[in-house]
Structures are given as structure tokens and as C-alpha cells.
Design a protein around this nucleic acid. Structure first.
Lengths: 369, 369
DNA sequence: ATTTAAAATTAGCACGTTCCAAAACAGAGG
DNA sequence: CCTCTGTTTTGGAACGTGCTAATTTTAAAT
């Protein structure tokens, strides 16, 4: 009691003293030692308070926390990591943020980080392995404890491996062949199969697969699902119905005339992703084709925008947000447990039917062909 | 020469030694000292090499850099900041990442960071001042040297000020009244004025202003521009034409019937932002209104999606990416110069006319009303 | 050879935190 | 009064890097 009162007096004295120039260090940073001095305890005690240790007496804890908020102290995690603490920072390196799907994934990652009290660095590799290399290096230097990585096209294992060292990594959507790291992805094959089967059931026989580059593993999987559905229906696979384009709006746009000018024109298309599908929608509209009536289109990813196109785009929903969240959670779990055994997580892909996949006149179109 | 050879031998010995368990510290981190030992120099020399100092001999530099890449050394910026170096990290705290406009802004910030060799933390405040408080605190703890902040609705100066301390902050889009910090925003008023004037020129007389909450400063400005255009054209301002909604797709959707059911229905609308406008488009389509013919709509922000709606949405382009980039650049400049004098940057807003702002039958509609 | 200047390298403390061992303290029982 | 517990508190050595001042090496000039 008496001691407490005495100490309060002491504390005030020290604040006086401090305001006269002691608190302000040359770079203005307020340290645990400053707090200790003001509270009349040692830095060790303050450290214990910060750690939430039960060892410190209630009265002392209150006094210390009081001083902390009074002075506006902010904890310096950098110093703590130096001493061996976990960093609490993870990096997210995304292949291309101009694609809304990957943006949704990024948002999912961020969301999950908040849930796990981590904080994410953000970097857009813009499909450049060089940039990707630089940002990963930078993130490591800045103390990222792990990485959620959606690798850029053309990422080479040889370059990536020494760069990563033993940094825990979770890959999303895309996988670098040979890299010993976890992987989170949607069931691309199954999703594509279901979508194609739906188009077949609607009466379509000339179904195209549009968009993406052959070098993309994701595309291989989706293409495989497409072929599987054709096989199931005993439809012959026609390579002229597979069109390779950039996975962009304009890529989809350029595919439209190609599909229509075939000797036996396509009457429907499964697109590599929604962005391509939306581009195709516009291309078809420009050519006077009524999508959903004369022509069936299904996209992939089910980005937010798919709901707002005209006609509303049917799509295979892979839930980018969920995918990102799962990846981040997996990484955080691995960081917490210290167990970096590669793990593979497959998330379901579900067909969302809207207006573009209808096929009222599909048979007519087909017979005309 | 001789010395060099001797040293190479020494180096190899030490690597041998190291692989036998010296390099691997308990947490596996490889330090400047390890590099020094392997290269047969002192840590100071390695530090100089890292700093790119001209003081170190070419031969030594090469030897050191060689060892660094050989061992896979990664620089520990945390330790450097402890010593007083700039952190090279900035935080971006965005009010709402479910709005594509703010996402574009965020991407612009990230892009600019790469240009300036900074690396950004990403956090979504989801319009929650509490979450915002937490993430800002966390970012400070993790050593962010500054903040690009698009504040959440309801952010209070009283809470924010002590939290920020003297951390350099650049606000984007929204401003916390009374906060002494830089601000980057589009010319909302002028943009809204131009858009409204365009609708008036197209023959519309009953023009609504749709979306957003009255508490938003941005909305005030846009609304002011709208009123200014009405004044210029000697049109009376009618409060029943101003509809307050959430700035979301569904918010815009609910506005459609309200606009059509007025005693004197609206024939056009300037929307608070594109998301609202797109929602309105859908609401109007559901009501059988042919937008662009019977009804004029102009959005605000010109997000990517505006190009892909049907009909294509006219909008006031404020270029979110550019806005974000400007904000980040301003912050980085202030960090580099150490000069934190608040500065205000206004970016132009330009009207982009697409298909929704036409008004073929506007007069007819009006006379019918 | 010696001096001198310039160039190259190094020792050692500081930064803000954590952790360990050890010390100080309070209360109880003798 | 002391000793014996158990509870609180504390000094000081790390952690990886940067900087200053000091030291060593090299080269040039005498």
C-alpha cells in the first residue's frame, strides 16, 4: 500500500523528467526501457507484462499498461524476431492481379491472415518470373515467415529452389513441377467435366474449349475434364475446337469469329476462365449471336462479375476467396506446428447455371451446320 | 596473390567446418558473420559489401558476394531497422476490398511500391473502425514506416490520432476531418458536374442521384457537383430524386423501383459509384426499362467491369489505380525526404461515355410523366 | 629504405527485445 | 529473531546489422 503510493509519486516525477527530453530519443522511438523507467520497474518486468505472463503482480501489470498507453508505446516486433520470435508476417505473391479471380484469391488470403493474427505482404508478379524473384527475395529480407505463392508462368524450379531455401511455401492454383511444397487447388478436371456434360445434356454437340495457354497446368486439367465428358458421351474430340488465347478479355473476344467460321461451327464453348468467357460473350454479341439461345457459354472461376454480365454467365465456381483462405490457413498451420510436410488440398468446383448455358435453339443450329 | 590462394584454401576449410554444423544455427538463420567467416573477412567488410560501398576492393567484393550466393544468405532487414535504417515497408489499409474500385486502388498502391522498392502490407478494414484500429496497430508493430489509408466509415479522429502518433500517413479518397495528413482524391465535384451536365444535354430533366450514405465526404462532393450542374441549367433540385443506399450492387438494385414509382419518375440517374450503377442497371432491366434508350445512367469510378456490362456503362473515370499510385508515391517521397508536411493532391475525373447515357426517348418519357 | 598518403579492413558498441539465472520480497511457522 | 516457502522482480547476455574510429595494408614518392 504505502509502497504503492510512494511509487505513484515516483512515477510522476519520472514523467516530468522524461518530458524534459528523455523520452524523445534521436529517432523518436519509445522503448520498453522508457516504459520501465516511467513505471518504476525493470525492462524485464515490462517484457513479462507484454508477454501476458502470470508471474507479474496485478498492480504492477496495471501500472505498466497504464504507462504504455499514456506514452503511446508501440511494441517492436522486429527486435523480438531478432531474438528468435516468429515473425507473424507472410508473403503473398500473386502471378497476376489484373485478373479478378486472382484478386479474389488475394482477398481470401488477407482475410484468413486477419483471422490468424498474421499480416500479409502483397506482391503482384505480373506473370514475370524476374519480378517474382525480386519480390520473394525482398519478402524474405523483410522477415516473411512463409509464402502463399501463385507462381508466374515460366517459373523455373532451378531458380526458385535456392531462392526459397527452407522457407515454408503453399502454392495456390498453380504448381511448380518438382517443388516440394504444399498445394491448394480446385477440382479443375471434375468441374470442367460437369460443365461440359451440362452443355451436352442441353443438346450441344459441337462444344469448343476456349482460352489459356498450353503451358498452364490448370488448363491441362480443365481440358482433360472437357475431354472426359466428351468421351463419356461418346463424342469425338475435335482439336479444331480447342482454341488457345491469352487468358484475357480480348483473348476471348478474338475467339468468337474463329468459332463461328469453322466448317462445322461450334454451338457452345467451355472457357478457360470467366475473363475469357466474358470476352467471348462480347465477341459473340458483336457477331449478332444470341448467347443462351443460339449459343451456350460456360465460364470458369465464377468471379463476381459473372453475375452482372448480360446474359448472366454460367460458370464453374471455384471460389477464389475460399481457395486463398485455405492456402493461407494451411500455411499458418504449418508455421505454427513447425511441420512443413507438403500437403495437397483439393477444393470442390461446382457448376453455377445462369443464363448463358441454355440451348433452346442449339439443335437447330447444329442441324443447320 | 599468394595471399589470395592461401585464402581460398582457408575458405574451403571453413566451409567444410561449417557444413559440419557451424553454419546451422539453432534457428537455421545464416548471418553476416557466417558469410564473413567463409569469405575470410570481418563482418564489417561484409556489411560494406552489402551497402555497396566503394571502400571495398573489387576482389574482396567478388569473393564475398560469391560466398553469399553460395550459402544462400538472405539479408536481415529487421536487424538493420533496429539499428536505425528505414524499414522499406508501408501499410495499406483499405476501407473495403469487396468494392472493386478500392481493389484497383490497392493494386495501384502495390504497383507504385514495387517502383519505389517498398513492400506493402495489405489489410482490409471491411468498414470496421475496430478492425482498422487493430491492423494499424499491428502494422506499426511490424515496422511499417508509413501508411496509405482509405479510412473506414465512422473512423474517429480521437481514436486514430494517438494510434498513429507521428507515423506519416497519406489518405486516399476519404479524409478523416481534422487529421493532419496528406490527402489524394479525384475531382469528385467536377466529375459529377460534367456527368450531370451530359445527361441534361441529352435532354433529361428528371435526373436522380443514387447511392451512398450521407456520412461519406466523397458523396457530399459528388452530390455538390450534381447540384451545381442543375443550377447551371436552371433546373430545380428535387430532394425526392436523391436516394440514399448502401454503396453495393444490391443497393443500386433497390433504387430502381423507387425511381420509377415517383409521381414524376426519373428518366436518368447519376450514381454514387459504378457498383451502385450496375445494380441499378439490373434493377431497371428487371423492370423492363431499356437503359440507354428509355433511361440514362452514369456511374462513377469507371471500374474495369463498366466496360463489360450490357449496355456498356458510361462512367466518370477517376482511375483508381492512378489514385493509389499517386498516394503511394507521395508517401514514399515524404518518407525519403523526412518532410511530413500535409499535402493535397487532386486527380482529374473524366467522363467516359458508353451506351447507358444515351437518351433517344428521354423527352418522350418525360412528357409522358 | 623510409616516409607519407591513400586505400582497405576491422573491432566494438548500439539498437529493442527475450530469456535465464538469480535476487529480493512477503508471509508463515518455528 | 530466523528459516522456509512461494511469489515478484531484476541484471545481463544474446540476436544480426550499421557505424565510427582505429588499424592494417598497399602504393607512391622521396
Amino acid at each position: 500500500m504505502n509502497w504503492n503510493v510512494l511509487n505513484m509519486g515516483l512515477k510522476n516525477d519520472m514523467i516530468e523528467d522524461a518530458t524534459r527530453g528523455r523520452t524523445e530519443r534521436r529517432d523518436g522511438r519509445l522503448t520498453i526501457v522508457d516504459v520501465a523507467r516511467h513505471a518504476g520497474v525493470s525492462k524485464s518486468t515490462v517484457s513479462l507484462v507484454l508477454a501476458g505472463s502470470g508471474l507479474v503482480a496485478e498492480a504492477t501489470r496495471e501500472r505498466v499498461t497504464g504507462v504504455m498507453s499514456e506514452l503511446g508505446y508501440v511494441y517492436h516486433r522486429g527486435a523480438a524476431t531478432l531474438r528468435g520470435a516468429k515473425s507473424g508476417v507472410i508473403g503473398m505473391v500473386i502471378n497476376d492481379l489484373s485478373n479478378p479471380f486472382f484478386v479474389e484469391m488475394a482477398i481470401g488470403i488477407e482475410e484468413a491472415c486477419q483471422g490468424g493474427a498474421y499480416i500479409p505482404f502483397l506482391a503482384n508478379a505480373a506473370e514475370s518470373p524476374l519480378r517474382q524473384h525480386q519480390v520473394i527475395r525482398s519478402m524474405r529480407e523483410h522477415g516473411a515467415g512463409g509464402l502463399v505463392l501463385s507462381p508466374a508462368i515460366g517459373t523455373s524450379l532451378a531458380e526458385l529452389k535456392p531462392l526459397l531455401g527452407d522457407l515454408p511455401v503453399v502454392q495456390v492454383m498453380r504448381r511448380v513441377p518438382g517443388l516440394k511444397a504444399s498445394f491448394v487447388a480446385p477440382e479443375n478436371r471434375e468441374g470442367a467435366r460437369k460443365a461440359t456434360a451440362h452443355l451436352i445434356a442441353a443438346g450441344h454437340r459441337r462444344i469448343a474449349f476456349v482460352g489459356g495457354f498450353a503451358s498452364l497446368g490448370v488448363r491441362d486439367e480443365r481440358l482433360a475434364g472437357y475431354r472426359a465428358a466428351l468421351d463419356d458421351a461418346r463424342l469425338e474430340f475435335d482439336p479444331s475446337l480447342v482454341i488457345e488465347t491469352a487468358p484475357t478479355y480480348s483473348g476471348g473476344g478474338t475467339a468468337a469469329p474463329q468459332l463461328l467460321n469453322l466448317v462445322a461451327p461450334a454451338t457452345a464453348a467451355l472457357c478457360f476462365n470467366d475473363v475469357v468467357a466474358i470476352g467471348l460473350l462480347r465477341g459473340l454479341a458483336a457477331a449478332g449471336v444470341r448467347v443462351g439461345e443460339d449459343f451456350g457459354v460456360i465460364g470458369f472461376d465464377d468471379i463476381e462479375e459473372a453475375k452482372h454480365t448480360f446474359p448472366a454467365l454460367s460458370s464453374v465456381a471455384v471460389n477464389g476467396r475460399n481457395l486463398g483462405a485455405r492456402a493461407a490457413q494451411l500455411l499458418m498451420r504449418q508455421l505454427a506446428s513447425g511441420d512443413h510436410e507438403p500437403e495437397t488440398v483439393l477444393c470442390p468446383a461446382t457448376l453455377v447455371i445462369r443464363a448463358t448455358s441454355g440451348a433452346k435453339n442449339a439443335n437447330a443450329t447444329e442441324t443447320r451446320a
